[in-house]
Amino acid sequence: MTPDLQPSARPGGLFSELYIGLMSGTSLDGVDGVLLALEQGTWRMLAHAHRPLPPTLRQALLDLNTPGDDELHRSALAAQALAVLYATVVQAICASADVLPSEVQAIGAHGQTVRHRPDQGYTVQLNNPALLAEMTGIDVVADFRTRDVAAGGQGAPLVPAFHQAIFGRSDQTVAVLNIGGMANLSILRPGELPLGFDCGPGNALLDMWCEWQTGHAYDANGEFGALGNVKEDWLEDALQEPFFSMAPPKSTGRDLFNAEWLNRWLGPHGLTDGPLSDTDLARDVQATLCELTARSAALALREHAPDASEVVVCGGGALNGDLMRRLSEQLPGVRVGRSDTHGLDVMQVEAAAFAWLAWTHCNRLAGNVPGVTGARGPRVLGALYPAR
């Protein structure tokens, strides 16, 4: 697909098939939605909308990442609230693009991952796609990961095929690094199927420590961590986490990189999850966690794609200037830049991928790449919830 962001119309003023993609990632900062015009071989971005997660919903989703009382009831309520928020994003998108719901083929709604245990044969994305279809009047495709897991795969990452369609080059190897709550790599070689895997934590640990120390949900532009110094011995301890040395296919999430992991790492150094009176030390920890995200991604890239000439960074981590600087330092001789330079805003890429996955479902095309997820073969992903 050739990046072309200018909307084109068919005779009579009708767009090519329209799909909405919705994404609320492990960073839990909000919902991003996009409207894409999709046809075989072309794509066009028509609209984007973002809505932050209300604090109560954000906390409810965070709480559901770990075992607790009355989980079934709490998860059902959270799924309903998320669907309502999704619906407001869809309405904003349609209004912005002056598009009627009846003109949209389908919504691809990923849902919110609260448990991801492919090693146990399941993955859970909270969602209420039936309610979303009812509220919007648009068909909804949801539950994308389960089919891949049922076929023996990791259920993640699902974006490498989309990344290849958007960012792949015919003359060189390109890597796409998506940094949300977790970080995942797509390796795009000319004439080959894409490779991809989760490479470690993205923003999740960074955001957690920053909130504990400053009260802010994230480190804006990395300014808090940029004032700290990396503690190399602490970093080496963190890199001993077995996940980093696992061979792909592999995926991860808050089931591993969570508050318990962070406290277990901090404990030998006499620290806990409370705020520190020593601001310099707090900044040093933030800098070390930022370096962990950068170095774990760079190590994975050097091992699995030493021929990559460019790394395209997307997701919220691309807005962290300190993290981008550290990535560049870890990858000398490699162009490290944001997806914006390729025509797709860093906060739109994953939502666009789920619009594309909805398109693959509606066209009965496989959405997974078995070499990425480890599934037994190509599978049509998702379940359809008709609007009527």
Rank of each mutant, 00 (worst) to 15 (best):
V285H: 13
Q120E: 11
A92V: 03
D278A: 00
A183N: 01
G377T: 12
L85K: 00
P248Q: 11
S75L: 01
D233T: 14
V124D: 10
K250R: 07
A92G: 06
L365P: 03
G168E: 00
G121A: 11
L131E: 09
R376G: 15
V114I: 15
F15T: 06
G367D: 14
N221V: 06
Q125F: 07
A87I: 02
A161S: 14
P249R: 07
W261M: 08
S8T: 13
D148Q: 08
C210F: 08
Q105D: 01
L36W: 11
V99Q: 01
G274K: 08
D29P: 15
G41C: 14
M23K: 07
R325V: 01
P275R: 06
G253D: 02
C314F: 12
F162K: 08
L289F: 11
N258Q: 01
P201C: 02
L53F: 13
A95T: 11
G41H: 15
G374N: 05
E134C: 10
L132N: 03
L28N: 12
D280Q: 02
V99N: 01
W234E: 06
A318C: 15
G333R: 11
P118K: 04
N363W: 10
Y19E: 01
G196Y: 00
A9H: 10
E223N: 06
R326I: 01
A79W: 02
T288R: 11
D63G: 05
D70A: 11
D119M: 10
G321H: 15
A106M: 03
A305Q: 06
G137C: 13
L100D: 08
Y86G: 00
R264F: 06
S8G: 06
P194Q: 00
L72K: 02
A161M: 15
A37T: 05
L5E: 09
I166N: 00
L72F: 09
A305W: 05
N128W: 09
A204S: 10
I20K: 13
R388W: 10
A109D: 04
V349L: 05
Q91R: 08
N363S: 09
R169C: 02
P268L: 05
P248F: 13
S328K: 11
Q154V: 07
V124S: 14
L53V: 10
S251V: 04
L384M: 12
A351G: 05
L281Q: 08
A353E: 08
G121V: 09
N65A: 09
V230T: 13
P378F: 15
A298V: 11
H216V: 00
L82S: 00
A183M: 01
W261A: 08
A353V: 10
N203A: 03
L177N: 06
W209K: 08
V311E: 04
D98A: 12
V114K: 13
I166E: 00
V104F: 03
A238P: 06
P3C: 08
A204P: 01
L271D: 11
D278F: 00
V140H: 09
A81C: 03
R379W: 14
R295W: 12
G316L: 10
G196S: 00
A78K: 01
L331E: 08
